[in-house]
Write a protein that binds this DNA or RNA. Structure first.
Length: 195
DNA sequence: TGCCCGATTAACT
DNA sequence: GTTAATCGGGCAA
């Protein structure tokens, strides 16, 4: 049986947490699958929402680890983050893609497609498929509707540059499962291997 | 207040 | 390849 992840897991550096999340299982109201792509963000670098200090939108990032930070992207989509680091460090891991395994019918209905690749491959798609919205901002990751289980160690993790940002573009803080068909974008040939 | 831009996606040409 | 949808934050005035 997989180990349930709680606050202790998230109360560490985003650089430790993010690669360990690849292969972990995320369920929201019993719907979800295996995490295959995430990105790390930290207050110290300008691509992070927390870089310029607390605002109403990002306040959850400045709270304790183990909580969900959900924000609206481009005025349209929702994006899910796991708050990490000791409280006040304002780090978070953006959940970018999952391999759908559980609750396929609900995901297909919400996304309006049966195409597996299009259900959860991208941060906005994933939130729509799982039914996550801004109303879930600030919820604990250790209690329903969230259930998060540790990776079983089978995933081979690669790292590369983050996607869709214009600042700190060279930091290789995107992590994914090597060769997964459910990535939002493939990793380049020069992607490095990670623990 | 007004203007520009963004951790995106789908539907165009 | 380009563009529209649409809203909160940051910054200038």
């Amino acid at each position: 049986m997989r180990k349930r992840l709680g606050r202790a897991f998230f109360n560490r550096s985003v650089h430790d947490v993010a690669p360990e999340l690849i292969g972990a299982v995320l369920l929201f109201n019993g719907v979800g699958g295996r995490l295959v792509e995430v990105e790390a963000y930290h207050q110290s670098e300008p691509a992070a929402h927390s870089f310029r200090g607390p605002t109403r939108r990002n306040s959850v990032m400045f709270g304790p680890p183990g909580y969900a930070y959900v924000y609206r992207s481009y005025g349209i989509h929702w994006c899910l983050n796991f708050v990490c680091e000791p409280e006040g460090s304002a780090g978070a891991v953006l959940i970018r893609a999952i391999e759908p395994t559980t609750g396929l019918a609900a995901m297909r209905r919400r996304r309006g497609t049966a195409e597996m690749r299009l259900l959860c491959s991208g941060p906005g798609r994933l939130c729509e498929a799982l039914g996550i919205t801004g109303s879930h901002n600030g919820l604990s990751l250790a209690a329903p509707p969230f259930q998060i289980f540790a990776a079983d160690g089978g995933a081979e993790v690669v790292a590369g540059p983050r996607i869709g940002i214009t600042k700190a573009v060279d930091l290789p803080w995107r992590y994914g499962e090597k060769g997964s068909r459910f990535l939002s974008k493939p990793f380049g040939a020069k992607a490095t291997l990670s623990a």
